[in-house]
Nucleic acid binder design. Structure first.
Lengths: 209, 209
DNA sequence: CTAACGTTTGTCCAACCGGTCAAAATTTTG
DNA sequence: CAAAATTTTGACCGGTTGGACAAACGTTAG
């Protein structure tokens, strides 16, 4: 665990934010090893040694970024609640995840990059915190199934499918836009996606008489 | 376009294959910039200058790999056929894609890496060959919908959803295994996934009376 | 055998990269 | 203001990387 939180001046707080913002841009576009400190420093409008004054190692930036990411990234799933109508809960979960793909594509790509490379830096978190959370929510979904509120299926793979389909619009954005073309690949694509996903998941999950 | 295909000796053919196999392993695990020629050479069991005798630049290896990949990668979609029962066609498309995620995860990750970085080397192909193919198949699916064989929905986003959900099991494999845990994360996970995806897509697409 | 051709390797290089350091510039504090 | 603390920078360093190259080695055809 960490010691007491380091005391920070106003400038330190501001500059650290600036660096993290720049690093998110660079890391999400080039991956960890594909990014250089110089790139991040330039994107943050400062010199390399200056940047290294705020973060002593390249890895520290990545680590800080990743820690922050995970909290916000799993927030939608955390909100999936036992109380409330199952269909409504699932619909808003899907919608929230898709909104995150639309509004925070860099965060999504940063995460995808990390997982693609074998999740070397967040493996413990995947097997710990994440697994616990998913198991917990899978139990909630199982409860809904037992109660006949939604069709029976595998809750874990259902969650994977929601992750995959929504994050696809952030991670594979260039491909999506290329395939849809100029006319359909514009801003409306997220609304089309929302409509499609809602139909796919909710019709597919509707209880059978 | 390329000039006439270069004449190659038996050794050249064998060694080039060896290098491409090694490069697939390394590139898919570390990305292009994260991989070094030395790593690839070592994985191929030869010295770096020797490797550079067969491929003059690191990029040439990646390019060759990518060209080959795309052909096999799109084969399942190409097979999606107008003749034959729509539900059966879609079911076997989904199954084939999932089998590719299981049997060729490295290829999937190589592709994902490329797209994540903005597809700098295959953009023309996405906007050309790929878009044409998808538009063509989307038309086929639209035909099925008009004929009342499957429920009406957006064919392009349907294809995206199939890509996303199946490739997820290759690209996010570590996460899937971490979340499923030791017991359910074994070899059986692909069968569970197949069963789930079939239910998700085919029930969701079943025509409504 | 030997000349020609194909293959392999050791050595080298320039560019790049992560990170250090001391000194200079700036801001904060008394 | 002046001292102290913080912030910024230029110069530098050791290690790595992509790639060049010539010399050595192996193979094959005449």
């Amino acid at each position: 665990m960490e010691g007491s939180a380091p005391r920070r001046t106003r400038i330190q707080q501001e500059k650290r934010e600036l660096i993290l913002e720049a690093a998110l841009e660079v890391f999400s576009a080039n991956g960890f090893r594909g990014s250089t400190i110089d790139q991040i420093a330039e994107a943050a409008g400062m010199s390399k040694p200056n940047l290294l004054y705020y973060f002593r190692r390249k890895e520290d930036i990545h680590e800080t970024l990743m820690q922050r990411l995970l909290d916000t990234w799993l927030a939608p799933l955390r909100e999936l609640d036992d109380i409330g109508d199952p269909m409504t809960e699932l619909r808003s979960y899907i919608r929230r995840k898709l909104e995150m793909a639309r509004d925070f594509p860099r965060e999504s790509r940063l995460f995808a990059n990390e997982i693609l490379q074998g999740a070397p830096r967040i493996m413990p978190m995947l097997e710990g915190e994440l697994k616990t959370l998913v198991d917990e929510k899978a139990a909630v979904i199982k409860g809904w199934m037992r109660a006949g509120k939604i069709a029976r299926t595998d809750p874990w793979h259902l969650i994977f499918a929601i992750w995959a389909t929504t994050q696809h619009y952030a991670d594979f954005d260039v491909q999506v836009r290329a395939v849809l073309g100029a006319d359909r690949g514009g801003d409306g694509r997220f609304e089309d996606a929302a409509r499609f996903l809602e139909q796919l998941f909710l019709d597919g999950l509707k209880p059978k008489g």
